[in-house]
Simulated assay, not measured.
Amino acid sequence: MLELNPDIPKDPDKVDRIMKSATRIFAKNGYLQAKTADIAKDAEVSKGIVFRYFGDKGHLYLATVEYVYERLTDVADLSVWTDAKDLGDMIERAVRYKIQMQLDYPAEFKVSVQSFSDMKLLPADVQPEMAEFWKKRTAQSTATLEQPVLDRMHVRAGVDKKVLAKLLNSVGEAVFADAEVFMQKHPNAQIEDFEPIIEQIHSEFDIIEHGFLDE
């Protein structure tokens, strides 16, 4: 997790409570509407402790985003991606799995997704730190999860795999945005209710993999 003010002793239990409270409150209210005083109260610490540990609200938000990323990474089964036999298999397995995780960890996923739309609302000194955080994590995820599958595929000559990975990520992000809207409209939805969305992304990746021209 983000280490701020490293010279200041921190109570691990208080840090954990602050992170859990910040996750819930940022998820519910977003960056602008969330109040540090509410986070401190929910965590049963003083507001001064929050600022002493994290410096300001912007860096508290950054630390919370890193906290939820690490939490989701710790519980994730990466074999869902790396053991896929091909691109279609990978994306179907990944979509099902990520939707299920989104149902199991709604606050963590919401903070993660909101961090992109909230980025321009952050203080000027925090924005580049958030951008750099996601740049590194995206590159890391691509190398760890998608690249092993792409390396096993017989991609036609001339295709830049970096461009291909970027295209795949763009399509995936669009589908997960659809899933987010669906969840907001159907808060009690189960994984089975997402079959149309899963079929949608499977069809889109089938077109990417096999093309759309009738040769």
Rank of each mutant, 00 (worst) to 15 (best):
M130W: 11
A107D: 15
D13R: 14
R52P: 01
I49Q: 15
R137E: 15
F205N: 00
G55T: 09
K110L: 12
E108S: 09
A22L: 09
K110E: 15
V181R: 14
Q140P: 04
N169H: 13
S170R: 13
A22G: 10
D125P: 02
M153F: 01
T82H: 04
H186P: 01
S79F: 04
H59T: 15
L168F: 03
L2F: 03
L121N: 14
P123K: 01
G88T: 13
K161Q: 11
D11C: 05
Q114G: 00
Q190Y: 04
K47V: 10
H210D: 01
E108K: 03
V181P: 01
F109C: 01
D104H: 00
D42W: 00
G30P: 10
Y67K: 05
S79V: 00
D38E: 13
G58W: 05
K162Y: 10
V50S: 03
E215C: 01
S21R: 02
K161R: 15
A27Q: 02
E44Q: 12
V155H: 08
E70N: 15
G211R: 01
Y53M: 06
K135P: 02
D77E: 12
Q140N: 12
R93N: 13
R152E: 12
D11V: 08
R156Y: 11
E204H: 11
V68E: 02
I208S: 09
E70S: 12
D89I: 07
V126N: 03
S141L: 03
E215A: 04
R152N: 08
W81K: 03
V50G: 08
E108Q: 13
L122Q: 04
L4I: 14
W81D: 04
M90P: 04
S117W: 06
V111D: 00
V65G: 03
F54A: 04
R156N: 11
S112W: 13
D125K: 08
H210G: 03
P123A: 00
F182L: 06
P128R: 04
G211H: 02
L32F: 09
V68G: 02
E173C: 10
I39N: 03
K47M: 12
A22C: 09
G58S: 10
H210W: 06
D7E: 12
E44H: 09
I91V: 15
E44C: 00
E132G: 03
S203F: 11
E70A: 10
A34E: 07
W134C: 05
K120F: 15
I198S: 06
W134D: 05
S21T: 07
I8E: 09
G158W: 02
V111K: 04
P128L: 07
F194H: 04
